[in-house]
Design a binder for these strands. Structure first.
Lengths: 188, 188
DNA sequence: GCTTTCTATGCAACTAGTTGCATAGACAAG
DNA sequence: CTTGTCTATGCAACTAGTTGCATAGAAAGC
């Protein structure tokens, strides 16, 4: 299960509670692996019972206490094992592409709003990634020589940026195609 | 469930058996939605019992008989309904990116083989998509004026091509980064 | 005749992920 | 002093997807 490994990586980068992990999965590591808080809590509990994580009750002032998880030695070993074993190149699950092909059997023009909405989301994500890159890696406030971990985080972020740029360009292409179809064959 | 909708689209494009669908999910529609034959058979059975699909026993010579599924009127309506309701922009599930970030806590150089393997797979997919594009849409044997359905299939394929090109370029970037790290910090 | 390959369909058990709901401490606004 | 928001954790029920196995017809190769 890749969620386990994503949690191990995130906790190695910085120990934290289920709640904090859930928020990291809304940004940072969540850009390429999503999870809800319920899933995270359930998996944390299992990982702790398996001995790959340590827990520590942390009293807080001004907010409820939390359980801070960190990676135990067997967890590090498990991650290392996973890193050395080959994985399948990922395959896409892209609903919008299914919709676009499905539009041939309905009204293609009805998809315009939907595509425009997705376009806005991807433009926003791109802007968000670019500002993060400037802040953490390429801007004047970024650490001068990046260490290995930062270089790796940066190359992953560059992947996210490339993905969003590509998606924005493609959705523009989709919109142009829909408009052309609307002009030549006004299927009612 | 998007698998249902992918099946509806595929069966509208051309009726077929579970086995045939499973093979389409290895190419064509499978480029942006994956499914195993078990999942397909199970969902087909449910969709038929719900009345969204029709079945027809088709005797064949030279091979076992098959059940050919096609979309019934309620299935068309269900697809149309789905096309008109907004969906969430997809989020990625990218194991390799998790691995790359995890490499900071292990030996980054150990990932080189893995990344090269993925690179080969994506180069091959790109070549495959490009030859498909030439055959079906842009080559001399392609239908001269494309109809709406073909234009939509083509724009989806262009998305696949853009995705694979982007991925190949990014994996090159990852490799270069791993090599730089190997030179500057030979972590044992 | 035996094995392999391709077509064709399916069950059972499991793992992963989603949705809806519930609880509770602490603070801020009205 | 109630309502809303943010932090924090969790259960129960469900849906989706994977893995392993099983069966069987028909052709091809040996």
């Amino acid at each position: 299960m890749a969620l386990e490994h994503a949690i191990l990586v995130s906790l190695l980068e910085k120990p934290g509670s289920g709640y904090e992990l859930a928020r990291r999965f809304d940004r940072s590591i969540g850009y390429f692996w999503t999870a809800t808080h319920q899933q995270i809590y359930r998996v944390l509990k299992r990982m702790e019972s398996e001995g790959v994580l340590d827990v520590r009750e942390v009293p807080q002032q001004g907010r409820p206490d939390k359980k801070e998880y960190s990676v135990a030695a067997p967890g590090r070993a498990a991650l290392s094992g996973w890193l050395h074993e080959p994985i399948e190149p990922e395959s896409l699950r892209h609903d919008l592409a299914v919709k676009i092909r499905g539009a041939a059997f309905d009204d293609p023009a009805a998809l315009v709003d939907e595509v425009e909405r997705h376009l806005e989301v991807h433009r926003a994500r791109l802007a968000h990634y670019l500002s993060g890159e400037l802040r953490d890696f390429t801007g004047p406030d970024a650490p001068a020589p990046l260490d290995a971990g930062q270089e790796l985080q940066h190359v992953v972020l560059r992947g996210g940026i490339a993905y969003e740029r590509m998606t924005v360009a493609w959705l523009d292409d989709v919109l142009a195609t829909l408009h052309t179809l609307g002009r030549t064959s006004p299927s009612a």
